[in-house]
Design a protein around this nucleic acid. Sequence first.
DNA 1: CACTTGACCTGTCCGC
DNA 2: TGCGGACAGGTCAAGT
Length: 291
Amino acid sequence: MPELPEVETIRRGLEGLIVGRKITAAVSDTPKSFPNAAENVEAFLVGAAITGVRRRAKVLLIDLSTNYSLVIHLKMTGQLVYVDASARFGAGHPNESLIHSLPDRSTRVTFGLAPSATLYFNDQRKFGWVRLMPTAEVPSLPFMLKVGPEPLEAAFTPDVFMARFSRRPRAKVKAALLDQTVIAGVGNIYADESLWLAQIHPQRLVGSLSKDELSSLYSAVREVMNLSIEKGGSTDKNYVAADGRAGTYLQHANVFRKEGTPCPRCGAPIIKTKVAGRGTHVCTVCQSEPK
DNA sequence: CACTTGACCTGTCCGC
DNA sequence: TGCGGACAGGTCAAGT
C-alpha cells in the first residue's frame, strides 16, 4: 500500500517531528523486522541524533549523526507513527484512537526519542523491515543500484520515461509501470489510476504503445502522484502518515476500488480483473483491450 | 534472456 | 456460528 506518495507524506511528516532529536532506545521482538546486530544498535543508533529524513523510491532513510542510517521499507502494511507523550493526554489529535492504542500487536520496533516521544514501526504482515547500516553503504544496496528514476524530479523528462519503457517492449504496460527498475515508486493504486487517466488498457504491450500514448502515460503518472501527495496519500486500510493521520486520495480515485461504479469519463461500469498477477481496475470503454 | 508466477505474512471477508 | 479459502499488494526468488 505505501507507494511513492504515501512514503513521501510520511517523510515530510517525520522531517518536522524527529530531525534534531536523539534516539534513546530501540527495541524489537521481531528479528525479521529489525535484523541488526545488537552491538551495532548500541554503538551507532542509541545515543545518535537524527540529522535528516530522505526517500528513494518507496524506501525511507533516516540519517544519523553517527554516519549510520536507518533504511526502512514499509512494504504492504508498514507504518511509522510518532507519538509525543503529551499527545496521550487531551483531545484533538488527528488519530486519537490509534495513538492511544500503541504499541499494539503489530508493533515490530519501538524507538525512544528524547525527551519524551516514541516512534513505532508497526507492520501487521511482517513484510517490511528496518535496517541499520553505514550511510555511505546505502547506495550500494542491490535495490538502490537497480531502481529506476524518481518520476517527480525535474530530470525525469518524457524522453527519460520513453527510454526506460523501451527496455521492456514485450511486457504488459501495467507490469512495466510496477517494475521498480523501470520507474521508482509506482504501485498498484497509481498504476491503475495512471492507466485510466491515459486511457490505456493495462494488458497492452509496451511495444504496441504509440509515442502519444507513452506521452499521455508520462503525464498521467506525474499528475496522479502529485495529486496524491497533495491529499496526503491513499488510506485503504493500514496506511497513516507519521502523525497518525489518514490520507484522502482515494476519495479522488477514478477506478481503484471502484468496481461497479460508473466511469467518471464515459459512464460505463468500472470492472475489476487481474493483470500481471494483481487486482486491476479498468473502464473497458475508455481503455480498449488489446488484439 | 525476458517475462511471469509464487512465496513471504496476517487479517478480513465471503460462501457453505 | 465455524471453517476453509481467496484475497490484499511490494519485492525477490524461482519457474517457464
